Computed example of a mutant assay.
Amino acid sequence: MIEFILTGDYIQMIQLLKATNLVQTGGEAQIVVSQGEVKYNGTVDTRKRLKVKQGDLVEFRGHQILVK
């Protein structure tokens, strides 16, 4: 499990995927989110600009990201 320390109120989903090095570019992040490859708190979510906040769990290709 990846623990991501949030420094502000939130981080956008595509930025989180880039910050944790699970995708190489913002374009790749947008594609995988829009194709339904990302789960947000257990549910597939296709919103690219989704505001991920402290306590949220994101799952992508076998990786889990816990936002702290």
Results as ranks from 00 to 15, higher is better:
R47H: 10
V23D: 12
V52Q: 11
Q30L: 13
Q54G: 11
V23N: 08
V44P: 09
I31T: 08
K39I: 11
N21W: 05
V23E: 06
V44Q: 05
K48T: 14
V33R: 06
G36H: 01
G55L: 09
K39F: 12
Q24Y: 03
S34F: 01
A29P: 02
V33P: 02
V44S: 03
K39T: 15
R49P: 14
D45W: 01
N21F: 08
T25R: 13
D45A: 02
K48L: 15
K48W: 10
E28W: 07
V38D: 07
T25Y: 10
Q24P: 05
T20F: 09
T46V: 14
V44A: 01
V33E: 12
Q54K: 11
T43G: 02
S34H: 04
Q30S: 15
K51Y: 14
G55H: 12
I31S: 11
E37M: 11
Q24W: 02
R49C: 13
G42F: 00
Y40H: 04
Q54V: 12
T25G: 08
K53N: 14
L22K: 09
G27Y: 08
Q54Y: 09
G42C: 02
Q54S: 12
T20G: 04
E28V: 05
T46K: 12
Q35V: 03
G27C: 06
V32P: 04
V44G: 09
G27W: 04
R49N: 14
G26S: 02
D45G: 05
D45T: 10
G27H: 09
T43K: 03
Y40M: 01
R47K: 12
G42D: 00
Q35R: 14
E28A: 13
I31H: 09
